[in-house]
Design a binder for these strands. Sequence first.
DNA 1: TGTACGAACGAACGTTCGTTCGTATTTCAT
DNA 2: ATGAAATACGAACGAACGTTCGTTCGTACA
Lengths: 217, 217
Amino acid sequence: MFDRGTGGQGASSDNRESYDDRLNHILAAATDVIARVGYEKASMRQVASAAGVSLAGMYHYFDSKERMLFLIQFRAFSALLSTLKEKLHGVDDPVEQLRGMVRNHVAYFAANIAALKACSHELDSLSGSAYEEVRQIRRDYYALTRSIVERILAQRPNGVAIDHHLATMCLFSMLNWLYRWYQPGRRRSPAALANQISDQFLNGLLGSPATRNGSTG
Amino acid sequence: MFDRGTGGQGASSDNRESYDDRLNHILAAATDVIARVGYEKASMRQVASAAGVSLAGMYHYFDSKERMLFLIQFRAFSALLSTLKEKLHGVDDPVEQLRGMVRNHVAYFAANIAALKACSHELDSLSGSAYEEVRQIRRDYYALTRSIVERILAQRPNGVAIDHHLATMCLFSMLNWLYRWYQPGRRRSPAALANQISDQFLNGLLGSPATRNGSTG
DNA sequence: TGTACGAACGAACGTTCGTTCGTATTTCAT
DNA sequence: ATGAAATACGAACGAACGTTCGTTCGTACA
């Protein structure tokens, strides 16, 4: 909305590519710095230096530090949500849908571990309309996941009642806390990690292996 | 170690009480402010004002802002670990031990929701020996919890292998992420929340109610 | 009454922060 | 070739930060 004056002269594709490339480059550097030291301690000077750009030059791409964080979070959550929608297409079994959701989430953030931290840890670092805009995507992501959880719970034998909201938040807890301890490339592949999280969420510690299906990979 | 110069003239008990009370009062105010705005954004001026103390007066109780956060985290994790050890005493069934652990954790932080955030969200805000000292307590807490998880997994039918570390981290994820969404006094009592988290962790979404025991409260 | 000391304070320190300004340099349609 | 727009930069800004300094107040003990 603020980036690139919306007045559209159909600039040469060379320029635009160069502009977008540079923007992506700066955002990637910013994501790394924020993941390492946190949003508040990440200074614009530090990001500029990491990106190989002057301090003042940063303000050609964002009008503020907060806007920079917004772009990082907006892009990450948007990508996460849209790839999830794609992957759910054509899958009917809610259990298989849930496994797909976990696979998608883990795969995305295993490939972008810095983005995971810049999103999970800095959820409250935005304010005002920037915060609300990101929050809306997160809400959509939550609603989609919760609908899967509800379908799973609906086909379950009537036992102790399970709160839908709580169950969904337990799942997000496991996924969002990953940035604290998971190191891609050590011990577990993203696919294996996703499988174990799904198993854990669906069957728990005591769950009988009989109820489990499709979990090699 | 830094608080109260160790050179001991046997000060009157009146003085000492007053000193400790004031220290606790300031730490409580600091915990609230940090929980609300985050450690980096929480200025010493803001904490001083919230505690009703002058800015310079703060430095009679800590020699730095970091030391202040250290005291908050050290006290919280120490209390958590020691109460856990107490409550596990005399309990043999590992499943019941785990339920006790979750109850203890949820109860403590439901009563100190600001402390939960100041601990969970600011795990990396300390550095050097202060960080290491807190980390050691967290390690002990983790080791104790993991030993319970291992005993549960040991008496489980041999099915799909479950990684002990991953399983333990899933539990801590659910507990540590609570500060993001749980509001004490709304909808769920701490005891009911603890029960549902235990159920979720032990039996998962698909777990048969038959394997569940002792979960009314 | 005089001395010593912990507790608390207002004021100021030096540093770092996010941001802005004025000005070069490059790009490119005309 | 030319002029305007886009891009980049060094320098500087005011504000806020954590911390320190010198002082004052109240009280316990000689």
